[in-house]
Design a protein around this nucleic acid. Structure first.
Lengths: 192, 192
DNA sequence: GTATCCATGTAACCAGTTACATGATTGC
DNA sequence: GCAATCATGTAACTGGTTACATGGATAC
């Protein structure tokens, strides 16, 4: 059987291009930015970023330069090119592709009657706590952004704020749903 | 380079096992059930279902029998085995694995300042309309379920209802967010 | 002395998608 | 006549994850 080495493409590429419009970055920087700045709606895998960056260099969407600094290992810093900016813009104008929804919690809920209710309650409580944590983080991010003079004057401000607001309301809706579902399940148990 | 044929596993397997606890199904039936019953939180690919079913047969999680019926092509109907039920239960008791969030709409919002606002407005309107449609569908599903005598008496009822309610509230939150974001963006534009 | 952060990179693997092949039947 | 539905299946591909290798610096 043949096994070709095919080019690596898509979403990761555009996420990287977008981040590079904000500032030149190393692969490691990109990963950090994802984890700290946009992880509530976007995630990248470090093992995927490096090969994609290499390919993007071949496609001339980015340029690489090596930066030396005392104490730290050398860094490969990537800068977006004009061609890269055009590629990003082209993608931005394309309609969104919705990847098929797959919510494991909901799948388990759907088949929940096959196990004791305690497992479901545990899952719902876990999910609620997870959402409470992200809600707190999102609220902090909102405060930080709206207190940042430079950010407030940036053209991107209303968009950045919108992404944070999404995170906040998303968490709130999920917390409410967990509470209501926990209440319903308990009621149902009593009624049996 | 070597290219091994590795066994196909995971989430799809458990979704199929769960569906087979409801009734024996062919691959095609499973796909239809996903599309019509649980697509708002779970999706399967028909090209993936067949090989996974074959592998599950090898693992003795399901048994196959061929059903002939006039007019239609023959059907391979799969039934869950005791071993399959145990495998499902084992998974049900395991904590949920959250797959990394990747919301393309939010990613585009984050980099939106690099294109004209009209493209973003278009996307937000599309998203809103999509959510309005799924909201309508979810409300219909809720009504149907609560009017179904047999479903109401099933142990699964509160869980099924919870999944639908999730769909409803999820759509509502997204619609609200789209509206608010559209309003904010317009305000910002006027303020410029 | 141990863990974490900094930093890059590759190979193997995995799960899922797309496209294709096949072919009968039903509805417009 | 054409599209859609019923029905099964495979091969090639894609995109992403995990595990590993390397190694210095810093923090507890």
């Amino acid at each position: 059987m043949e096994c070709k080495n095919v080019p690596i493409i898509n979403k990761t590429k555009y996420a990287i291009l977008g981040i590079l419009t904000l500032m030149p970055c190393s692969g490691y920087d990109i990963k950090k930015f994802c984890d700290k700045g946009i992880s509530c709606f976007w995630n990248e895998n470090i093992g995927h970023i490096y090969p994609v960056l290499k390919q993007m260099e071949n496609e001339e969407l980015v340029t690489k330069r090596t930066e030396q600094s005392e104490g730290n290992p050398p860094k490969n810093v990537y800068t977006i090119t004009q061609k890269g900016k055009e590629e990003l813009e082209k993608w931005m104008k394309l309609p969104i592709e919705h990847s098929p929804e797959r919510l494991e919690l909901l799948l388990k809920m759907f088949f929940a009657k096959s196990v004791s209710v305690q497992y479901i309650i545990k899952e719902l409580e876990n999910e609620k706590n997870r959402c409470l944590k992200t809600l707190e983080e999102s609220l902090k991010a909102e405060e930080e952004l709206s207190n940042n003079e430079r950010a407030r004057n940036d053209l991107g401000y209303p968009y950045w704020l919108a992404t944070i607001k999404y995170g906040i309301e998303n968490s709130r809706f999920k917390i409410k749903w967990c509470d209501e579902t926990l209440a319903n399940i308990s009621n149902y148990k009593k009624g049996e």
